[in-house]
Design a protein around this nucleic acid. Sequence first.
RNA 1: GGGUAGGUGCCGGAGCGGUCAAACGGAACAGACUGUAAAUCUGUCGGCUUCUAGCCUACGGGGGUUCGAGUCCCUCCCUACCCA
Length: 371
Amino acid sequence: MFKIIQQSKISKARIGKLKTLHGMAETPFFMPIATRGAVKNLSPDELKNIGASVVLSNTFHLFIKPGLDILKKVKGLHNFMGWQAPILTDSGGYQVFSLAKNRKITDEGVEFKSPYDGASIFFSPEVVIDAQKKIGSDILMVLDECPSFIKDKSVIERAVERTTLWAKRSRVYFKKSFRAKKPLLFGIVQGGIFKDLREKSAQDLVKIGFDGYAIGGLCLGEDNQETKKVLSWLSDILPSDKPRYQMGTGFPEQIVQAVKLGVDMFDCVLPTRNARHGELFVFKRNHKSEINLDKNFYEKVKIGNSQFKNDFKSLDKFCACYFCKNFTKAYLNHLFRVGEPLYQRLASLHNLRFYFELMEKIKDDIRKGKV
RNA sequence: GGGUAGGUGCCGGAGCGGUCAAACGGAACAGACUGUAAAUCUGUCGGCUUCUAGCCUACGGGGGUUCGAGUCCCUCCCUACCCA
């Protein structure tokens, strides 16, 4: 299911191959986010063209709309959204965090209030496995409790206990639910920035046994040094022959840091959301168009700012995206200011292409022994 | 020529004697977003300075009433609509 092709000699970075029911994906990879069955503004063929291999969707949001009946009728999300490559589905654990005002959590599960109409929705580990089965996900995530990192240790500790309990239940239920054509099931490590909690969480999950291990609850406001520490503690506990997935991460330098600490999979809303909000990621390249990941290797460009009104140059003439190859910064600045929908498409296309180029560059550096 | 309604900051538009450098929108200028309730949210937005404060200039022009006027009175100019 997961095979390491190359292991770096100077870091924990590795290149691997993850086999899923919808084909192989080379790690490390970055997943664009299609929360409601679509990466905002982009079509599947566009995603393929810029280098997407796996897409992330969301059980909670799909559960509400369009609902599982619809997804079952079309035989899964792949058919529904026209994406025949792997799909990973988040469990709704993140909504425990992001919709904290509208949910109640007990050991049984989470009682959500729908953000659309206030209807109550109950998520248990079993409900979530069932839902992901109907969605037809290739990589299922267990339901977890993603706490805010600010919470005191006792709160985090309880979240870890609950997450482990739910992981066990998920594992058991998963085994019952799938016989042939089994997708992958990932457990999720919690524990905030506390060494003992992170270690306990990881050890208990490893005992239960999963196809891959996710690291949750990171990059939610904690200091980057703390993130790094957590990853290095876990790199020795999580089995190295299984894929590791840092959920919700992150800024480009955070991804580079994590890969060096042995992480294989990433996802984040930043490239797409920030694109929509006027922020573009751009590599700093030398005259030969090379990127040096050891330095400050990129900048964030606020394309709507007045300085780009009269900037008729390409954003990045070495970028392979449709926008960079065909349009000027001044044009995108104009589209942004007047609110043309095309703005969001071009900006999203560019930022995602940046992330995929970043992943290609990282792999290239691993192959060359530079990372 | 007569009548009516108006003229407020970059634009639209509140205000009807003091708490008004003037609500609220928009534009403009900047910032934030990390397993997406996000084409969202936040801040600044007359000028100057010793900038959690002070000073100056401002509500069509001019004059007046008042301790005090964007707000009341007179007059002039302008705009829109209606009647001749």
